[in-house]
Amino acid sequence: MTSRVTTFTEPAALRWQSVSPAAGAAMLAVLGLLSSDYVTTVLGFAFIYAIFCTGLNFFMGYTGQASFGQSAFAAIGGYGSAILCTDLGWDPVLALFATMALSGVAAVIVGYPTLRLRGHYLAMATFALGLIVYEITIEWTSLTQGYMGYAGIPPLGIVGFELPTVKHQLVALVVLALFGVAVANRLRRSRFGRALAAIAGSEPAALALGIDVARYKLIAFVIAAIYASAAGSLFAHFVGFISPEVFGVTMVVQSFTMLYLGGIGTVWGPMIGAVIVSVLPEALRGLKEMQDIAYSAILILVLIFVPRGLAGLSSLFARFRRNTEPL
């Protein structure tokens, strides 16, 4: 599936399409604040994943490349923040930025040779990257404490001012996720974003127009890694505990589901997908043993009937309204 919804419609429709998901996110946050801590926690995970997927969307959606190893950078962020804040007593925000920078550097080092590969080969190489980092988190016990995991990670906060409850943290996560989407939107609507779209569309054509394809792929990979790292750090602070499984293959599968369900290559798709894939299993909990079946059936139906993802629905709806307006 390579569909990318990047059509620029008239300003009014554009504004409507970009404001309503933000309002939706804000409403979810309010809902989370009024509900039990359990619901708040589920929503918190959803917005952490939204950040992860918004980054992944740079590489997979805008640039049209496959990466199965973004979980590696989430692990760098998560373990980095855990170690810096727990053992060395760093401020969470400082640790967040430091690990983002570290992940960016790691992405350059790993990406420079790897991104010469294309298609399935690139997918395999990035998958290997994820597995290698997973193994490291298990085996390097003096650094990561192995299967035991890292406990006692302080909650998110700024210069000594901690966010004491999950509800406080949910607000912070929603704000950060919206900020992440805003940044993605700005980057997409620029010469830089157009160059990425050109690579997704046709590499020969991009080269013939003077676009340094290798360089732009690397930048997209680094941006995706920085987002993934931030998501990993936020996860560590939100839960207070991390172990190797958190950043395993499940994370990759989850994020792919979110990306395709929400709409790959769209600005809001990653967040929409992240929220729905996180919340849906909880909403179906009442079905007991049928829960997984219902969940899978809904995913399949969405992918059959809305192959461009749910973010494409709003533009469909807008077009429908235009077409049915009386003359």
Binding site: G201, S202, L209
Partner: peptide, 23 residues
């Protein structure tokens, strides 16, 4: 070799990559 998913206008906008500098 067009960027088939993008609009006609966007295709031409990408063409100006060489003569612009925004990063």
């Amino acid at each position: 070799q067009l960027f088939s998913q993008l609009t006609v206008a966007e295709n031409v906008e990408i063409g100006s990559h060489r003569v612009t500098r925004g990063g």
